[in-house]
Design a protein around this nucleic acid. Sequence first.
DNA 1: TCAATTACTACACGGCGTTCAGTAACAGCA
DNA 2: TGCTGTTACTGAACGCCGTGTAGTAATTGA
Lengths: 236, 236
Amino acid sequence: MPSRRERLRAEASQEIKAIALRLMTEGGPSAISLRAIAREMGMTAGALYGYYATRDDLVNALIAEIYSALAGKEEAARDAVPEDDPEGRVLAVGEAFRDWAVSRPEEFQLIYGDPLPGYQAPEGGAAADAEHRACAVLTGLVADAWPHASKRLSDDGYDWADFDPGFAAVIRGEFPDLPPAAVALAMRVWGRMHGLVALEVYGHLRPQVLDPGRLYRAELLDLTKTLGITPADRAR
Amino acid sequence: MPSRRERLRAEASQEIKAIALRLMTEGGPSAISLRAIAREMGMTAGALYGYYATRDDLVNALIAEIYSALAGKEEAARDAVPEDDPEGRVLAVGEAFRDWAVSRPEEFQLIYGDPLPGYQAPEGGAAADAEHRACAVLTGLVADAWPHASKRLSDDGYDWADFDPGFAAVIRGEFPDLPPAAVALAMRVWGRMHGLVALEVYGHLRPQVLDPGRLYRAELLDLTKTLGITPADRAR
DNA sequence: TCAATTACTACACGGCGTTCAGTAACAGCA
DNA sequence: TGCTGTTACTGAACGCCGTGTAGTAATTGA
């Protein structure tokens, strides 16, 4: 039973985020200014401090929202491919990630780059949760591929002690049978998807390369080789 | 024969860059402010406009300098390994890249991230040259590995028309015998080195992973497999 | 020695995040 | 209904910022 006050408050808080998001897509992450938001809302900048203690708090809420949306897209892309097609799932998630990043470069930058001058990410919070969610998708992909991938891995000797205890506990809860080396591999998969996309979003591939998406597709295919889940691998 | 004036001018210009660099390493890229630099030099902010037309121009000079230093480190790392050890060279360059990035995260961010709010990279200039230099190192590595790597590549059909004409011309001048597919592979190598390092620098690996360097090393080794230059490959 | 160029200051403008005292509208309670 | 405490907001201020512009002092070359 939200009171009238609470409802108005929640709406205002939501409107602030929405305007911030729009300002960002229009003028890049640096266009998120409390004064500009307040101007659009017909308020004073100081009034916003009733909703977010500081600008970084607002940015954080944005990051959490955006990261959560990304995780949702990745999950949807994965679930659109049948479970018995691990290669297809990797390709789908990978493409979904790049599609999202290329279509919303500012949001990518906000999450994966320096969000704003002097910004420092807080420890816990919704943003960390969303990051974990997105990461869990990749870990799941690796988990499905693990029977094949583990055979081709040369560097073993990974131990749960190589990870943060809390992090390890969460992962082991979600994937009870997964060895630590698989988690390490999932991180590498993350890095591999991140690399070309980050270069592209920050303008280091274009215009030298006309079709960065093609490069990325080749990289994804090569990634499935590393995971041992190409059709040829699995027929073996 | 630099006149006294020219000498002082060059020195001042250099001092500005040095202070900007120091401010950045102390307080992140956003700490580069003309007023802070002027304060340290005992001048007014306006005076700096005699040396750089705008703050972005100064940032650009910084980027060029830093990028050039990075390219130098990569070249040195490569040349420290004998020419007949392509795997060693890839590992050396890769490690040099990460070592540099981890030890100078702000500089990495300045080059590969959003340098500053609203900053737009200019087209030509020294920065682009340095980026090309660093990229050329990778292309050279791929060129050396190409006899082995070409056999394992599934996606061919690359054409020089897939690249910017000017870019293609420069590459073909430096590596006359290299096919376009190799250039595409070099870009992928770049992305692969970039991914994990970017995630680490922006704080997405720590503290979940205690030793990101180990992940990266595994990734580099896997990369040499893609390039077909592991000792086992070359003995074949 | 004198005129021209150069390097710089002082000041102003509009932008920013943030704080704070004050005000007006609202909520619940008598 | 009226009263009271809470809430939402304003307006002004502080100290930052990049950037222009007019004026001044020093240095230069003839």
